[in-house]
Design a binder for these strands. Structure first.
Lengths: 279, 279
DNA sequence: TCCTTTCCATCACATATGTGATATTTATTG
DNA sequence: CAATAAATATCACATATGTGATGGAAAGGA
């Protein structure tokens, strides 16, 4: 049987250690087609470690059984999506995957300036840096740079939060017309009710008002107790199709209380500096 | 130049119509894990059409059963790799996939100048433009721009040719030490013998000598009768890890006979113009 | 509006896939 | 060079997945 409970490394104890924030990433029930999800998890894992890896490491990191991992990797290599180095018995994404999503963005995503901006933010703030996009009723973390501090929240790529009730989600909704909000909240309450107490439209609207007024949104443990997130909507047109994107920095709420102004300034400066040259 | 024997499916009638060149792309026996391959085929298909698509179209293009396609696409959307637009019932890769392979190349692949070069070649020559990388005993077509002419060979992305016996393969091997060739030919004969008569080391070496001397290799129906390909090795360092890549233009062998010098010049000019600024 | 056509979701069975256990291979150590 | 440890491949079964068939929903036409 699969182990649905969180593995031991996730025991968050008392804020004294590495908090792993809930990751419904891709696994479990979300994957109607198991290996479909795994393929992409593997590619995303490489995105994170940026070097070759061997079967055992991949199996361990992603919590796949070793035997399945072995078969899947071999298959991906045969198809030419991974290169296999027999000497080191290690795998690495082939040039073929580099082209997979390339056409999607002629702008900052493709030329790397968006990623550079995220790296810059990571260095400057030390916090967890998150790039989020909307997916149905969720804000999904599309790219995550883990925090550099000793005490940190670990947030896997692919993590999802309710778009109407999270820092990144609020930022993503900043440009949506008011008329869409209320139906969205209803839908959210309908679909995600089991896990959350119902969300109030008024509260969501209040958050939206703030992000629209201030240009950023500070969530004080909106989702994860102890965690603060400062989210900022990215300019439209970052994505080729104009889909909204948002950045957020996450860290300890107490620390972020104090540094709020500075962090906001850092983010906005970074956006201005790194994302100017859009076609 | 000897002409290799080949399976019946390549015997393409009288050259009067659109020849579909054999595509062992990803399907069939190659996919030890069916849906793993399909996921990537889907992403590659979007790369080709560069717009949203609906279930039926995707199923048709890729020859997947509609029911399976439906489930798989829904799953990918749930995981956030595709965006689903309920209005048009269409799917499109999300920004999440744009980042998948981005880290692999800081250079021409990532910033798009490689792709621009390929597009340029497509416009200038009208032929099928192929980017190939090595995968075990194969040269695999990593990116393909279909020809613009009425009479054309259709070559799917993912197609594989023997690296020791194809235009792109010969170009890929140009920088390999001689000592590697003979074992590679033996391995090829061992693994692919059933489909091909044995390949002679001497013939391969002769081809290599030509590509090294001329900087390009013209295959006159080496694999596909009626098709000519002119392949040129790309400079090392295009790929971050220094893996070899090659471009090729394919078309009618008779026409290419005449245009050979011009096409070679066009390719080499394009390489010089588009791929100069490598880090 | 109703009829026709196209497109998609769903079902239940046949089958491909995932997995724990185990064998095999490769690396490490004495 | 054994002997041990680590890593990966393989096997056979349990199970998740793929699929043709079917019905329902949306789009198009009269």
């Amino acid at each position: 049987m699969t182990e649905l409970g969180r593995p031991a490394r996730d025991r968050a104890g008392e804020l004294g250690t590495d908090l792993t924030v809930g990751a419904d990433a891709v696994g479990s029930s979300l994957a109607l087609v198991k290996s479909a999800g795994r393929v992409l998890q593997i590619l995303e894992m490489f995105d994170e470690i940026q070097r070759e890896a061997r079967v055992s490491e991949i199996a361990e990191r992603l919590n796949f059984p070793q035997s399945s991992t072995s078969v899947l990797l071999k298959c991906l290599a045969q198809m030419g999506y991974l290169d296999y180095d027999a000497g080191s018995r290690s795998f690495l994404p082939s040039p073929r995957v580099a082209l997979l999503g390339a056409w999607l963005d002629k702008g900052p995503v493709r030329d790397g300036s968006l990623v550079r901006m995220l790296e810059h933010l990571s260095e400057r703030t030390g916090g967890t840096v998150i790039l989020a996009a909307r997916n149905a009723i969720f804000s999904q973390y599309v790219h995550v740079l883990q925090a550099r501090t000793a005490m940190r929240f670990h947030v896997p790529t692919g993590t999802r939060r309710l778009v109407v009730w999270s820092a990144t989600g609020t930022a993503l909704l900043a440009d949506s017309p008011d008329a869409e909000i209320s139906p969205l909240v209803r839908r959210t309450n309908a679909e995600a009710m089991a896990e959350q107490p119902p969300i109030q439209v008024a509260a969501v609207m209040a958050n939206l008002a703030r992000v629209r007024r201030d240009g950023h949104f500070f969530s004080r443990g909106l989702v994860t107790p102890g965690a603060g997130s400062i989210a900022v909507p990215l300019p439209k047109r970052i994505d080729r199709k104009g889909r909204p994107l948002a950045v957020a920095i996450s860290g300890l709420v107490d620390e972020f209380e104090r540094r709020e102004a500075h962090i906001v300034a850092t983010i906005q400066d970074a956006i201005a500096r790194f994302l100017v040259h859009m076609d």
